[in-house]
Structure formats: structure tokens, C-alpha cells
């Protein structure tokens, strides 16, 4: 016979034990202990039958409340235990956020290729084809066709490495333009990237081999004004919006010839060491294709006009990245290469 007056004590005792339970298994056992078929609370349900009829309803409600309270406590505790377990699992995976991440070991594209790509992309974006040619050239393609007569002082402008009498290491990529004009008819828009060679001993500003990009546009109405307009577009994209200027110069294969300057980006034009106090920085040479070049490649020089330009990629890279020694490009010290990720 159950003493219903002790039910509340039983509940209080149960709640205390449940509160301290440490695992889901323990909770399962407690559930059996109190609410199972032979459980302590269950026995009160069984005892209801023998309670006086007039009390039965009230006692029934009391036992139900007791069961409810224990079920709730079990559920609350179960949730708490699950959360604890998750916390522990997560904490076990604690990291030091300041340790470096695991690298995927990416290498670097050489800075000269990065600059070259940028230049080529800007011109191919304007519809210029990209064409290549050999590095060992005939002197005809390298000089004669480009209006450098034999025994002419202009040949001294580019100290040349000879292989044989009529075979040279190209001193510029202009012979690629010659080859292109000999094999294609105008209109023509091309850029020619590649290595060129000079008979120069390496020092901080000279290299025996370096990269050039040259460009050529030929058509029936191609003018110096358009040369200026196109190269302004290019220079402003590469060096940022700013003034440019064109100075007369001399190249055997162009006439009129010019050198193009951009406002010094180090001093903004005030004058500094980079621009030798002039406020301007030379970036490329250009000009209208000399009619003698058109004669050499068999273009009608009355019908067609054209313009061409050429620039040294090392020079552009040195200006853009403040590199002070051209030899660094060919030294291949990873401490240098890896700076340009």
C-alpha cells in the first residue's frame, strides 16, 4: 500500500538525482527506476485502484503531475547532456588561429611574363593579332628591310651579335613585322613579343638579351594622329590616367619618329631622381612606317600608311615595380621571383 503523502518527497528526490545524471544511459536507467513497469512512480498508479473512490480523482491527478515532472526533468537533462557532449567534441578540435595555414604550394609566373601578358592583353583587346618569329634572323629582315643601309651609322644604334655574315641574333622584334607584311596584305594590326639580343655586357641597366613588344598597324588611312590616340589609350590603361607627350626622335624604320613620355608617376611631374628632374618618363618609341620599309616588303607606299611602336618589357617592369637592376630578371633567385605572386 502506497503512502500518497510521500509522493512529493519521492518526486523531489527523483528530480535531484536526475539533475546530477551524467550520461544518457544513466537517464535511461532513471526513467526505468521511476517510470518503468515496476517504477517507483508507476507503483502509485497501480495503488490508485485501492484508494477510496472520492479521493481517487485527486490522487490520480497528483500522480500524473509527478510523472510529468519527472519526464520533463529527464528531457531537460537529456538535452543538457547532449549539448555538453557536442561542446566537448568541438573543443577537442580547438585551433591556434595565428598559426599559418597549410599552403597549396603555388608557384609564380615570372614578372616579365606578367608584364608582357598585360601589354599583349591590352593590344589584343583592341583587335591586334599576336605573332611570333625566329630569334636568329637574316640581316635582311633585321636591318636592310627596315631601312638600315649597310655601313650606315644607324646600325651602330644596336650593337649586334653576328652568327655569320648575313645571319644575326635579332636586335629587335621588327623582323617579325617584316615577315608578317611579306606574308599578309593590309589592313594589318599586329603585336610581336619576344626576346631580342644586343652585344652589351650586363650591368644594372644593360642586358645582352631582353624582351620587346612591337606593334604595327597598316591601312589606307592610318595616321600619326591615330598613333597618338591608340598609344594614349594603352599608356593610360597601363600607367594610369595622366598626361602623355610625344617627342621627335629617330628610328630608321619610321618617319616621322617619336618617343612617348608619360608624366612621372613617382613625383607627378615635379621632378625627381626617377625622371631625372624632367617630370617625364620615356616608355616607348614609335612612328609612321617609313615608305622604304613598305617598298622592301612589296606594299604600295602611296596607297598604304602605317604606324609602329616598340617597347622594352624589362624597362616597363622596372618602372612599374621599382626594380633597380635589370640583371635580377635573369638571376632567378626565388627570393626575387616569389615576390611577384
Amino acid at each position: 500500500m502506497q503512502d500518497f503523502s510521500r509522493l512529493d518527497d519521492l518526486v523531489q528526490q527523483a528530480l535531484g538525482i536526475i539533475e546530477k545524471a551524467g550520461s544518457e544511459n544513466e537517464l535511461k536507467e532513471l526513467k526505468v527506476t521511476y517510470l518503468g513497469k515496476k517504477g517507483k512512480v508507476t507503483s502509485y498508479f497501480k495503488a490508485l485502484g485501492s484508494a477510496p473512490a472520492q479521493e481517487r480523482k485527486a490522487l490520480g491527478q497528483q500522480v500524473n503531475r509527478a510523472r510529468q515532472a519527472i519526464e520533463n526533468a529527464l528531457a531537460v537533462r537529456e538535452e543538457a547532456i547532449k549539448l555538453d557532449a557536442l561542446d566537448q567534441k568541438l573543443e577537442a578540435r580547438k585551433v591556434d588561429v595565428t598559426l599559418p595555414g597549410r599552403p597549396f604550394g603555388r608557384g609564380t609566373v615570372h614578372i616579365l611574363d606578367q608584364v608582357m601578358d598585360r601589354i599583349l592583353d591590352l593590344f589584343s583587346g583592341l583587335g591586334f593579332d599576336v605573332v611570333l618569329g625566329p630569334e636568329v634572323e637574316t640581316s635582311w629582315n633585321n636591318f636592310d628591310a627596315l631601312n638600315f643601309p649597310p655601313d650606315h651609322p644607324a646600325r651602330d644604334m644596336q650593337d649586334t651579335v653576328f652568327i655569320e655574315d648575313e645571319i644575326v641574333l635579332r636586335t629587335h622584334t621588327s623582323p617579325v613585322q617584316v615577315r608578317t607584311m611579306k606574308s599578309r596584305k593590309p589592313p594589318l594590326r599586329v603585336v610581336c613579343p619576344g626576346v631580342v639580343y644586343r652585344r652589351d655586357t650586363p650591368d644594372a641597366t644593360h642586358a645582352p638579351a631582353f624582351f620587346q613588344v612591337e606593334g604595327l598597324m597598316v591601312g589606307e588611312h592610318v595616321s600619326f594622329a591615330e598613333l597618338k590616340g591608340t598609344l594614349n589609350l594603352f599608356a593610360r590603361k597601363l600607367f594610369g590616367e595622366g598626361d602623355t607627350r610625344f617627342r621627335p626622335s629617330f628610328f630608321p624604320f619610321t618617319e616621322p619618329s617619336a618617343e612617348m613620355d608619360v608624366r612621372c608617376f613617382a613625383c607627378g611631374g615635379e621632378g625627381c631622381a626617377l625622371c631625372k628632374q624632367s617630370g617625364w618618363i620615356e616608355i616607348l618609341g614609335c612612328g609612321m612606317v617609313d615608305p622604304a620599309v613598305f617598298d622592301a616588303v612589296g606594299y604600295d607606299n602611296e596607297k598604304y600608311t602605317g604606324w609602329a611602336f616598340g617597347m622594352g618589357v624589362e624597362r616597363i617592369a622596372m618602372l612599374r615595380h621599382a626594380i633597380d637592376d635589370i640583371r635580377l630578371f635573369a638571376e632567378n633567385d626565388l627570393r626575387f621571383l616569389k615576390q611577384f605572386v
Binding site: 589592313p187 600619326f224 591615330e226 621627335p248
Partner: peptide
């Protein structure tokens, strides 16, 4: 060239070529 350089390259306007559209061949 003689006329252009003394007239002043910087007094010659900068215009843009107008021409046929075409994709570049790389």
C-alpha cells in the same frame, strides 16, 4: 617629319582608328 617636329607633335590631335571589327589571332 621636319615640318611635323617643328610644328610640334603635341599640336597634332590624338584620334582613334576606326575600322573593321575582328577578333585577334593569338
Amino acid at each position: 617629319e621636319e615640318v611635323a617636329r617643328l610644328y610640334g607633335y603635341n599640336k597634332i590631335p590624338a584620334t582613334r582608328p576606326v575600322g573593321y571589327l575582328k577578333h585577334p589571332e593569338i
